[in-house]
């Protein structure tokens, strides 16, 4: 294991770690424990080079900036922290996030924001398949397009898609709501377009503002559950 070589960055309460020299485990330990003890609020991470679990499991109001591409599970289970990646993220970015803000300036791979309970995930580029799968209350804003099966079985929360969506968008949705600006290749079972209300326009405006995207909320369409799968239809002519 490499030694911990933290060096103060410009601001007094900030730190910089170079993952070319420091083990990721040391960096995450610092973020989990030492940062609070030492009063550090801002941390910069250099040369992640596709590392897994960067800034995972944080539970403090930290500002973390990562310069480069990261691998699986960026900022997984995040609470309170604001994590920005100046690069692309691998599968499972901000998976099971509880609160805080995770921003990916490049693209995010499969399962971005999966099962997030709270907080906001901003992906400035495209998101791959299964974005927001099983979302449980978090918000996701995607500047580009999302892949197929996004928002599958999403239970609560909001997803704003500024580009297009692949197949089966919102399949088996519960109470989560999707707002999309571009085209949808196909909707999943039980997902349907619904009229935008003033409340929806306000929600989109709020989320676009958080993300820093300039689109007009009026350009978005609402997709929600038709709730036809909520109850068993005994009259349906089905064979099993």
């Amino acid at each position: 294991m490499a030694r911990v070589t933290t060096k103060p960055a410009s601001a007094g309460n900030s730190r910089e770690f170079d993952l070319a020299n420091v083990a990721l485990r040391e960096v995450n330990r610092f973020l989990h424990q030492d940062a609070a003890n030492e009063g550090v609020a801002q941390v910069r991470v250099l040369n992640p080079d596709g590392a897994h679990s960067v800034a995972c499991g944080l539970n403090a109001e930290l500002e973390v900036e990562v310069d480069g591409n990261v691998g699986y599970y960026l900022a997984g289970m995040n609470k309170l922290a604001r994590v920005t990646v100046n690069g692309n993220a691998g599968p499972g970015a901000a998976e099971n996030m509880m609160s805080g803000l995770v921003r990916v300036r490049g693209y995010a791979s499969t399962g971005a924001g999966a099962s997030a309970h709270g907080g906001c995930l901003v992906i400035e580029g495209d998101a791959s398949l299964r974005c927001g799968i099983s979302l449980k209350g978090g918000d996701i804003v995607v500047g580009g397009s999302v892949g197929s099966f996004s928002a599958f079985m999403a239970q609560a929360g909001r997803i704003v898609i500024c580009g297009d969506a692949g197949d089966a968008l919102g399949d088996s949705l519960y109470e989560a709501v999707i707002y999309i600006r571009g085209d949808v290749r196909s909707l999943g079972a039980d997902a349907r377009f619904e009229p935008m209300t003033d409340q929806d326009l306000a929600a989109v405006k709020e989320l676009l503002t958080t993300a820093g995207f300039k689109h007009a909320p009026g350009e978005f369409r609402r997709i929600a559950s038709a709730k036809s799968l909520y109850h068993w239809n005994a009259d349906a002519n089905q064979e099993y």
Partner: peptide, 21 residues
């Protein structure tokens, strides 16, 4: 995964993408 590409010369200026299904 990207971690197998990070050492390549000029990788910072490479076009990096995931193949679509």
């Amino acid at each position: 995964e990207f971690r197998s590409l990070a050492h390549l010369p000029g990788i910072r200026h490479a076009s990096v993408f995931e193949p679509k299904p």
